[in-house]
Design a protein around this nucleic acid. Structure first.
Lengths: 150, 150
DNA sequence: CTCGTTCGGTTTCATCATGAAACCAAATGA
DNA sequence: TCATTTGGTTTCATGATGAAACCGAACGAG
């Protein structure tokens, strides 16, 4: 009866969600993106129960999104840092942030925003474009079966 | 002890996940994007338990992502269709799909892919850019506290 | 070196969410 | 008219989550 898994499914969206689709994983990745590395830092930032955090970190390491490193400050503890695979989640975070900023706040609510470090300006909204550069809306797209690689 | 909510949190990513961060919501949105509208269609496509689907559809409607309409085929049933707010989740789906395609398949596994309907070509990879058009990596960005609107 | 504290977890247990299956009413349709 | 389909709700067993207690290893002040 287990929680249903998308392992056998051919849809890449489902596959992604199977790996990072739980309540905490993307927030851990977000914090890692911001430079947090230590168990305690994540725990304090997220307010998540320690057993759950422990579970999630293990999961993310197992999936190659985080990796464990010796602490950078010379102590004997370890640190969790994003791998290249983890860093490539960046556009998902940006997309989630953009939607959240737009649709999940009341007027007058305090909020944070991801900005260009160089000028402190907001980012350009994400755009879905065709290979030739045309801006695409959902109706301009279609799901295709693709022959397996190799 | 309830599942922790991000309602009071100022981070737009957390807010988004609070609304669409569960295992099924984005998949329902994906299917809705593909044109599915009826309870039974979603149920068959996702293989989700009917009580859960019922719950999720109610949730998505409550959050203004789907809306209930009289059936388009003249029958007395109702249909669930995306609102503008729901359609604006498109970039998130694309980002998830892109990451999943890249990182969640073994060589030789069958998969699907979102393509440009016009030419059947794959989409251009998503890019995070600054307002002035510069391509940004995570290190080029920073989280800022933004004064509340209005 | 020694002892109290911090860090990074694991264990335990109560509670919530999920999933499977049975059940049901309204709409459909033969 | 009556069986079937649709769109759910209810029930119940089980899995996941969260809070708190617990614990050993590392650290750090003296």
């Amino acid at each position: 009866m287990k929680r249903t898994s998308m392992e056998g499914v051919a849809c890449p969206v489902a596959r992604s969600l199977d790996v990072i689709g739980d309540w905490w994983s993307m927030l851990i990745v977000r914090d890692a993106q911001l430079g947090l590395r230590r168990f305690g830092e994540f725990q304090k930032s997220l307010g998540v129960a320690k057993n759950i955090l422990s579970q999630r970190l293990r999961h993310l390491v197992a999936h190659g999104i985080l990796e464990v490193q010796p602490a950078s400050d010379g102590s004997a503890w370890q640190e969790y840092v994003l791998t290249a695979k983890g860093h490539s989640l960046f556009p998902i975070l940006v997309a989630l942030g953009e939607w959240g900023r737009e649709h999940c706040f009341q007027e007058g609510e305090a909020r944070t925003e991801l900005r260009d470090k160089a000028h402190g300006l907001p980012l350009k909204p994400l755009e879905v474009r065709a290979a030739d550069g045309r801006l695409l809306s959902p109706q301009d797209t279609r799901v295709e079966q693709v022959p397996p690689e190799r």
